[in-house]
Amino acid sequence: MKEKKLKYTLISTASVFCFLLIWYLIADVFKVFPSSTFPSPFKVATAFVRKLTVTTPDGGTLGKHLIASLKVVLLGYLLGIVIGVPLGILMGWYRRVDLIVKPLFDLIRPIPPVGWIPLMILWLGIGIQAKATVIFVSAVTPAIINAYTGIKQTNPVHIWVARTFGASNFETLLKVGIPSALPMIFAGLKVSLGASWMALVAAEMLASTEGLGYMIQMNRMVGKADNIMVGMITIGLVGALLTYILETLEKKLVKGGRNK
């Protein structure tokens, strides 16, 4: 088992190194593109370190932009899942809730989160509220859909078992519906997280004065590709870290080999 784990770690590490090597060869050895638009990994690494302290040309250090983005993304995301997951569960379990909410949800669902940005700017300005609302819209949709689907997929035999023992409908939901839907709910949480970052960058590019999306946009205007890549890589790293935290939580909560 340990050997297998080591093997997988080695494969994953090797794939990252291969990617970096190919990048290095294209940028520094064969110089396929000009270094101003396609910087090498070393140049990006240097820019990364520099951006930790330097505020030009976007008015903030990497840390400042990261914190600004994290605040917005976590606020919107947490609101989205706190409302989305229970709503999806209730829609999946109670037919009346489904009948009331689903038509409205089906109408709102196809609107891309970015489509909400102009209206949010009009209503809430370019502050944290507007961006958090856009992220909320992105996060809430997958959270609802997955919780709803997970509940709908509850094995009727399990529901029957609970009912024949005399469990109430609510007790059956708590003891059967939700535990059985947990893998789907967690899948939704991960999709929501990805969608939140996408919406954040889009929102910050259109209307913001700080944040990683704003930093990328500002550096595009002055042609600093290395800083753009620093912003992108930071989003990737933070996204991966948050996904890792979610997966760790999933492993703790989803029992019975269903989290493989």
């Binding site: 078992v161 024949t164 023992f165 007790e171 019975g256 269903r258």
Partner: peptide, 28 residues
Amino acid sequence: SIAYIMQEYSTMSWLTVKENIQFGMKVR
């Protein structure tokens, strides 16, 4: 007080054997 053993597999995958057995007792 009725107990019903069904033809289909009805054990719950997220519960251990012990927890599955205790399911009905906990409901009651």
